[in-house]
Every structure is written in structure tokens, then in C-alpha cells.
Amino acid sequence: MANDGRARATIIGLSAVLMWATLGLFGAGSGQVPPFLLNAICFGISGVLALVLVTVTGKLERLKQPPKVWVFGTLGLFGFHFFYFTAIRNAPPVDANLINYTWPLLIVVFSAFLPGENLRVHHVIGTVLGLLGAALLITGGDGISFSGGSAIGYGAAVLSSLFWSTYSVVSRRLGQVPTEAVAGFCILTSLLSALCHVLWEQTIWPQGALEWGAVIALALFPVGLAFFTWDIGVKRGDIQVLGAAAYSAPLLSTLLLIAFGFGALTLPVIIACLAISLGAVIAAKDMLFGKSAPGAAAE
């Protein structure tokens, strides 16, 4: 029964990866809204909707958490986005995005320090395959050239990766904190994003029904529900499988953009698809096919 619960939580967590795959498509449809304003709107909508749901279901008391929980959760959500946006503004976006996408690998590595978790060879192999596939996808097979003068951007990309991987792994240690608390994290992240917008950005609102529809879709799914399902996954599911599977997000995002006419299906995309898919299957070997029987060859 415990294994069934772990598998169910893992599947719920994987739904977050599927939702994050729509970030590119909905983001492209949101027009010229600057990043921190978009963050403020989306997290504001998702946070308020979650708060209403928590209130209606009579679970409002679950939001009563120690200050350290609020600091941790808000730093995780806001810190990741703050440093990610800083990275892509101060370094070549392809380079910054690739550095940032080391977070799934870091989740798998950091998870080895969690109680009851064992980092096995197939977890590492699957995650590295995913990283190689993501690298090929992001660069388009053209390689990367880390340019001088972008130290701030590269440093911010490293920090964004560290923030999200640490948030995901430490969430496992805070398993007693209910997922409903994420509603508060979203609202606080929205407020901090609004402050950053006022300080550093020019206000450009979504134009027309299509752009507002894209923003609302972002708020409901990849910048909303995804953080709640991810919380369930990393706290109760197989965090190593989730880390490896997270590399499918940029792949699925690219495929969606291609399907809607924002890109072309190229050989690098096909190879990346195979590498990421194979890596995810290898990393999830235990969950998909069962663990090796006693006496089987050790990995």
C-alpha cells in the first residue's frame, strides 16, 4: 500500500512537469508583458484562487505555519524566478537557460542526502541523459559559447538552479507542512514580484482577449496548479524519478511550440526527444518494472 501511495504521488508530481511544458506556448501568447509583472499577475491569481478553495473546503487552519516555513516557501518560488529573470537579462538566454536546467540533475544528486533515499546508478544515468538531451534541445546542436562580461547572468543562472533544486529537496524534509500552504507562498511571491516590477520594469498590460487568456492559462496551470502537484510529488513520491523526468518539460514545450507553428521539427529535436525519453525510462526503472529481485546483480 505504501508503494502504491508513493507511485500515486509521483504521478501527481509528474503532472507538474506536463503543465510546465506549456510555459513556452502560453508565455508566447501573453504578448509583451514584462516578466515580473507577469509573475505578479499569475501568482496573484493562482494564490487567491487557492486561498478561496482552501477556505471553502474548511482547511484554512492549515495555513497557520511557523515564520520559517513562510520564508522558506517564498524564497523558493520567488528566489528561483528572480534569479532566472536576472540570468536571461544579463547573459545570452541560451547559455543561461542551459545552466538553469541543471536543477533536475541537482535534485537527483541532493536527494541522496534525504533519509530513506538511495541514489542508484540508473538514477544518475537517466538524469545525465536528460541533461544531454536538454542541452541539445536548448542549443539546437550549435553548441554554446560562454561570453565574457556575462558573469552576473551566469552567476544568477547558477543561483536559480540551486534555489529550485534546494527548495524541491528540502520540501521533502518538511513533509509535515500541508500542500495548502503553497497558496500563501504564491501570494507572497506575487507581492514581491509586483515590487520588483515597480522598481525595474515598464508597465505593459496584456492586450486583448487572446493575451489575457494566455495569462489566465499560465496562472491556472504552469504558474499555479503545477506548484501544488509538484509539492505533493517531492514530499511523498519518488523524487529521483521526478528530477529525471523534469527534463521532459523543455522537450514537450518545444514540441508544443512546433505544433502551434512557432518552430520546426529538426534532427536535434528528434535526438533530444529520444535521449530525454530514454533517460526518463531508465531513471524510473524501479517504478515501472519493479526493483531487482534479491540476489540480482548489484548496480
Score class of each variant (00 low, 15 high):
2 A>V: 10
2 A>M: 04
3 N>K: 13
4 D>T: 13
4 D>L: 07
6 R>P: 00
7 A>K: 11
8 R>I: 10
11 I>E: 13
13 G>M: 12
21 A>D: 03
21 A>F: 03
22 T>G: 06
23 L>V: 15
26 F>D: 02
29 G>L: 11
31 G>W: 06
31 G>D: 13
35 P>R: 04
36 F>V: 12
38 L>M: 15
38 L>H: 05
40 A>W: 10
44 G>L: 06
50 A>S: 05
52 V>S: 04
52 V>C: 13
52 V>F: 12
52 V>H: 03
53 L>D: 11
53 L>P: 04
59 K>S: 03
59 K>G: 14
63 L>Q: 06
66 P>C: 00
66 P>N: 01
71 V>S: 10
72 F>W: 15
75 L>C: 12
77 L>W: 03
78 F>T: 07
80 F>W: 07
81 H>F: 15
82 F>N: 07
82 F>E: 01
82 F>P: 06
84 Y>E: 10
84 Y>C: 04
86 T>G: 02
91 A>Q: 12
92 P>F: 04
92 P>E: 15
96 A>I: 11
100 N>L: 11
109 V>C: 08
112 A>R: 00
115 P>Y: 00
116 G>F: 08
118 N>W: 04
120 R>G: 05
122 H>R: 10
126 G>D: 04
131 L>V: 09
133 G>M: 12
134 A>S: 12
134 A>N: 01
136 L>W: 01
138 I>R: 00
138 I>K: 00
138 I>A: 02
138 I>C: 01
139 T>F: 02
140 G>N: 09
141 G>W: 05
142 D>Y: 08
143 G>R: 03
146 F>L: 14
149 G>F: 06
149 G>L: 09
153 G>L: 09
156 A>T: 07
159 L>I: 12
163 F>N: 04
164 W>Q: 07
166 T>V: 09
168 S>A: 15
169 V>I: 08
169 V>N: 02
169 V>P: 02
171 S>F: 02
173 R>W: 01
174 L>I: 05
174 L>E: 08
175 G>P: 04
175 G>F: 05
177 V>H: 01
177 V>L: 03
188 L>F: 06
189 T>Q: 06
192 L>M: 13
194 A>C: 11
198 V>C: 04
204 I>N: 05
210 L>H: 02
210 L>V: 15
211 E>M: 02
211 E>G: 02
215 V>I: 08
219 A>T: 03
220 L>M: 07
222 P>G: 03
224 G>W: 12
225 L>D: 05
226 A>P: 06
228 F>G: 11
228 F>Q: 09
230 W>E: 15
231 D>L: 09
234 V>N: 04
238 D>A: 05
239 I>L: 14
241 V>Y: 07
242 L>K: 01
243 G>C: 12
247 Y>P: 09
251 L>I: 05
251 L>H: 07
253 S>N: 12
254 T>A: 15
259 A>M: 12
260 F>W: 14
263 G>F: 00
265 L>C: 09
269 V>H: 05
270 I>A: 14
277 S>L: 14
279 G>L: 08
281 V>I: 14
281 V>G: 04
283 A>H: 02
284 A>K: 01
284 A>H: 02
291 K>D: 09
293 A>K: 04
293 A>W: 03
297 A>R: 13
297 A>Y: 10
